[in-house]
């Protein structure tokens, strides 16, 4: 988590604080951009643009507020700009601008929140969650992959999912 002291340093454009912000939020920015744009090269461009714009706007950042929504808003805006630029130049014939964004832009806030929560899990628990959800492995296969007993996989999985359910409960309660 970014400390209040680091937030105040970020506001002055301190390089160390900017790096701390990148380490905390960089993966979440990339995840949002990748889902929205569906292209790794464009997502990396969005990652660069987001942090460049955040740094340029750092003097307007309120250090008393959580930086996550502020950075998410910048990341989403950057992704929208890149999407529109790409669409303009991919069009083979003149078509009117359509204000509606594709479905890939929906639920990016949830994705952002989930990614931040994953980054806050202990590494060994995150590895189990990755094996189960991303790689689609069973507990036994995950145990082989991670070279740990299956009981360890089950206990880590339970702890990790309990932590995630707790950290993300505001998303569930907000929409339930």
């Amino acid at each position: 988590m970014i400390s209040g002291r680091m937030r105040r340093r970020f506001r002055t454009g301190d390089p160390e604080a900017v790096r701390a912000f990148y380490e905390e939020f960089g993966r979440a920015v990339f995840a949002v951009a990748l889902r929205a744009l569906g292209d790794r090269g464009l997502a990396e461009e969005a990652l660069q643009q987001t942090f460049l714009q955040a740094w340029q706007a750092s003097s307007r950042f309120d250090p008393d507020r959580d930086p996550a929504p502020w950075l998410y808003a910048i990341a989403r805006r950057v992704a929208i700009d890149i999407h529109r630029r790409e669409r303009r130049h991919a069009a083979v014939d003149e078509q009117p601008e359509i204000a509606v964004l594709p479905a890939s832009f929906e639920s990016t806030w949830e994705l952002w929140e989930v990614r931040l929560c994953l980054d806050r899990l202990p590494a060994e628990e995150r590895a189990v969650v990755r094996a189960i959800h991303y790689l689609g492995l069973t507990h036994r296969e995950a145990a082989e992959l991670l070279s740990v007993p299956i009981g360890t996989v089950k206990s880590r999985s339970h702890r990790a999912h309990r932590r995630l359910a707790d950290m993300l409960s505001h998303l569930e309660e907000a929409t339930a």
Partner: peptide, 25 residues
């Protein structure tokens, strides 16, 4: 279901991190 989305687990390329950090630094 969000946990199944590959976008959640993909990492930026090896050059992206250093590029951003160099740019910001």
């Amino acid at each position: 279901d969000e946990l199944d989305d590959p976008a959640l687990w993909e990492e930026p390329g090896p050059d992206a991190d250093s590029m951003v950090l160099a740019m910001l630094g």
